[in-house]
């Protein structure tokens, strides 16, 4: 009788790991080989990738479908501005403190909106985002409804020269994306992650196994909120200007993110990566057609949801049995 081993990693996943590390080195060196416009675009890609991973963790794994993550993007952005200007914090410190504040504020919010089920939860998150938008628009010290710019003195803390500042903000975005990607990956591999998968597969069964569903969902919501606030801070550190409408835009920070995840493949780790690449490729091609581009995006998302609910990555995986981030266990026969 031949022995069997159970393993998570596959040849493809090990190759992906090595290629990924090599790619990371190349990307980290981008300030020396890429032009300024490309650097900006790549920074934006990393930030969208992070938002997509986080939204995917909530919707694809924890079953918390939010259309209000712009609440935390905007909150993170505003905290960057408030804490640097009024508390004199270094921008990076301000972003991290903002994340803690976001986590703190997300707890009472969660206790309230977790009372709404399914799709009503989604709209509830949107209401919360609107409350944030309207509240920040009331704060005159932060520019009220018209917003404000990051003072030059604060900006200079990132680097004296423009090129240095752009490189710093690029590395921050890249670092954030890597951290988010690994955090989500290791979270899903952990006991809690397994609990999450159990909840997704069957809430009844999961509660039968003694998993506290409410608490597990709360943890995901709080952690996701904190990370989303970090990404929000980095987004507005790139933009250097903030206003309530830009900070809490449902289109920019939620609609696009949802399309990325759905098209790439919801409930998979690879999906957001593929989705982000497709999203930006499509945007570069169709950028001149503004509204048409968005209609095409909406249409593609609908077709994907109806015809291939596991997205592009799902199609690839079913065809080639690939897994780049080894999450599932495989049984192997030893000869």
């Amino acid at each position: 009788m031949s022995a069997a081993t159970v393993t998570r990693s596959t040849r493809a996943s090990r190759i992906a790991m090595v290629l990924g590390l090599l790619g990371l080195v190349v990307l980290a060196a981008a300030p020396w080989w890429a032009g300024r416009a490309d650097l900006r675009l790549m920074g934006e890609i990393y930030l969208y990738l992070s938002l997509a991973c986080l939204w995917n963790l909530m919707a694809g794994y924890a079953g918390l479908v939010s259309v209000g993550q712009q609440a935390y993007v905007g909150f993170g952005g505003y905290m960057l501005f408030a804490l640097t200007v009024f508390a004199g914090l270094n921008p990076v410190v301000a972003i991290l403190v903002g994340a803690l504040l976001a986590a703190a504020i997300s707890i009472p919010i969660a206790t309230l909106i977790f009372r709404l089920k399914g799709a009503y939860f989604a709209i509830g998150t949107w209401v919360v985002a609107e409350v944030f938008r309207l509240s920040f628009a009331q704060i005159q010290a932060l520019g009220g409804g018209s917003g404000s710019s990051l003072p030059v003195a604060v900006v200079k803390e990132l680097g004296a020269k423009k090129a240095a500042r752009e490189a710093t903000s690029y590395w921050l975005a890249l670092g954030a994306a890597v951290i988010v990607l690994f955090a989500v990956y290791f979270f899903l591999r952990s006991r809690r992650g397994l609990a999450l998968t159990a909840i997704r597969d069957s809430e009844v069964a999961a509660s039968g196994l003694g998993i506290d569903i409410w608490r597990t969902k709360l943890e995901v919501y709080v952690v996701t909120s904190a990370f989303t606030a970090i990404i929000g801070g980095l987004i507005f550190l790139q933009k250097l200007r903030i206003s309530p409408d830009a900070a809490f835009s449902v289109n920019d920070w939620t609609a696009f993110v949802i399309f990325i995840v759905v098209i790439g493949g919801i409930g998979t780790l690879e999906g957001p990566i593929i989705g982000t690449l497709l999203f930006f490729a499509l945007r570069e091609v169709l950028a001149d057609y503004g509204t048409i581009y968005l209609m095409v995006l909406g249409l593609v998302a609908i077709v994907v949801m109806l015809k291939a609910p596991k997205g592009v990555w799902g199609l690839i995986r079913d065809r080639y049995d690939l897994e780049l981030f080894p999450l599932s266990y495989r049984v192997r026969q030893k000869d």
Binding site: A119, T291, M305
Partner: peptide, 26 residues
């Protein structure tokens, strides 16, 4: 989209929302 899974109706109507909005804009 109707069934036990809440994602399809939510995401499909969300896509619809974006399409209608931009078609009106156009």
């Amino acid at each position: 989209t109707l069934g036990d899974d809440i994602l399809p109706p939510l995401l499909v109507t969300f896509g619809l929302s974006v399409i209608i909005q931009n078609a009106l804009l156009e």
